[in-house]
Design a protein around this nucleic acid. Structure first.
Length: 464
RNA sequence: UCCAGAGUAGCUCAAUGGUAGAGCAAGCGACUGUUAAUCGCUAGGUUGUAGGUUCAAGUCCUACCUCUGGAGCCA
């Protein structure tokens, strides 16, 4: 019987502009309230935040079935969609037929009332069934879509850079080693010897960035972007770091640092605009229970230009700040979290783009400025999260690049193909990396990165 | 990895070194076009782990584990 009618999602049912004599709804029961001769079921199928209220009169389903129609169970309902007599919904369904698809054991850990995000993290396989995580992951999907939309509208090409890479890019940061060798069986061997027998015949790692590969395509297709998983084996235990995360890395030929900063700002604003206009309902829940000022803050960021200051100006501001910092502020030193927070949260109270960083604290591929002291690097900082974008104009001049590699202790032969880009028709180009989860944290108000990734990987944790 | 804090019922939390408690959830019942429904009853515990101090440890000490917040690394 149920096979002949097309299933309607809860979202479509609640958006209906007319009564429906017969509707088929499938989903999970969020809660049940019993009256003397009938029951109220709240059904959610994840298609939207809201539940659909179903009225089941006595006798519609067997007593044995009704006993199992409880919180968490999966059901199928055929009934009439009619205007609701109740207060909290416009439409409701009076059931003509109720089937139990999958019953729910009484040990089901999700209750009607609020759970802490810490507890829900332990049951990551069930947490998308909560209002909060349903909202987060619907928004995550929209945000990913918005990323592609932004670049595709600007004729950028989406490049799939490798996840397994050879060689440890710029020697910085801890990498995950990829190997088919058994570390126990080979423990007595010298590492170099073992690599000859390894799958790729050389050391390989999970990617920490697709940037160098993206540069290949920027110097051929002009405007490109990557959007994929990224891996860092750093022992970072903070609310803003994960071992596996998603990063977006646009790379543009003929862009200088100014162009790069302009694009970064337009990108962040467009992502916010998309979420504001397409995720209104989900945002409203987050605005109510997670971050009271969420929508106001997003609108505020959208309307104002980001503040842009040179690193040296930031240092001057911080030095004259009427605030004592734990760490010293010095020209030539990197800014600490507390300094970034002061700039973006206390002083400017908006996103801040800092550029022209001291050369010695930046990697080899960034372009040297004419002053000889700074590089054409830029970071975008946002209130509450800190660094959300890091980028630069790349060093397109072969001789300077080689010089940088020497000072960073890198071997020329390891970057031969990268250097070829400078040998054969080199052009100025720029790019940046945006942490997808950090952006999602910013638009949802969620303060821990573990709560915006479906299945988080952090040091010591690879569950599910 | 470093600093700080916390681990007690399924969840959120109480408990001067002296018999382990509540709210919610669950189970049973009553009531009701209800909507975080309401009311009554029932059950639920090796107090993170291992040692130690003490007549007596959830409570004090040591080590370890896990989680949370902050720092560093960064996106």
């Amino acid at each position: 019987m149920t096979d002949r009618i097309k299933r309607t999602t809860v979202r479509d049912a609640l958006r209906s502009d007319h009564e429906m004599e017969e509707i088929l709804i499938k989903g999970w029961i969020r809660t049940r309230r019993d009256s003397k001769t009938f029951s109220f079921l709240e059904i959610n199928d994840g298609s939207c935040l809201k539940n659909l209220q179903v009225i089941v009169d006595e006798g519609i389903a067997d007593r044995a079935i009704m006993e199992n129609v409880a919180t968490g169970a999966a059901v199928s309902v055929i009934g009439r969609l009619i205007p609701s007599q109740g207060k909290n919904q416009t439409w409701e369904v009076t059931a003509k037929n109720l089937e139990l698809i999958g019953k729910c054991a009484p040990s089901y850990p999700l209750q009607k009332k609020g759970h802490s995000v810490e507890f829900l993290r332990e049951i990551a396989h069930l947490r998308p069934r909560t209002n909060l995580f349903g909202c987060v992951f619907r928004i995550r999907s929209r945000l990913a879509q918005a990323v592609h939309q932004f670049f595709q509208q600007r004729d950028f090409f989406y490049i799939h850079t490798p996840i397994i890479t050879a060689g440890d890019c710029e020697g910085a940061g801890e990498l995950f080693k990829v190997t088919t060798l058994d570390p126990v069986a080979n423990k007595s061997r010298i590492e170099e010897q073992s690599y000859h027998k390894d799958f790729f015949g050389k050391p390989t790692f999970l990617t920490v960035s697709g940037q160098l590969e993206a540069e290949v395509f920027a110097t051929s297709l002009s405007n490109v972007y990557t959007f994929g998983p990224t891996f860092r084996a750093e022992n970072s235990n903070t609310s803003r770091h994960a071992s596996e995360f998603w990063m977006i890395e646009p790379e543009m030929a003929f862009y200088d640092l100014q162009d790069n900063m302009d694009l970064a700002e337009a990108f962040i604003k467009e992502l916010i605009r998309q979420v504001l206009t397409t995720c209104e309902e989900d945002l409203s829940l987050l605005g109510k229970f997670v971050d009271r000022g969420l929508q106001d803050r997003l609108n505020f960021v959208l309307e104002r230009p980001f503040t842009r200051i040179r690193h040296s100006e930031a240092v001057t501001l911080l030095k004259s700040a009427n605030q004592s910092f734990e760490f010293p502020v010095e020209e030539g030193l990197n800014l600490q979290s507390e300094h970034e927070r002061w700039l973006t949260e206390k002083h400017f109270k908006c996103p801040v783009t800092i550029y022209n960083y001291p050369s010695k604290i930046k990697p080899f591929y960034m372009r040297r400025n004419d002053d000889g002291q700074t590089t054409a690097a830029m970071d975008v900082l946002v209130p509450g999260i800190g660094e959300i974008i890091g980028g630069s104009q790349r060093e397109e001049r072969l001789d300077y690049l080689l010089e940088n590699m020497t000072t960073h202790g890198l071997k020329e032969e390891d970057y031969d193909w990268y250097l070829d880009l400078r040998r054969y028709g080199s052009v100025p180009h720029s790019g940046f990396g945006l942490g997808f989860e950090r952006m999602l944290m910013f638009v949802t108000g969620i303060t821990n990165i573990r709560d915006v990734i479906p299945f988080v990987r952090t040091p010591g944790n690879a569950e599910f």
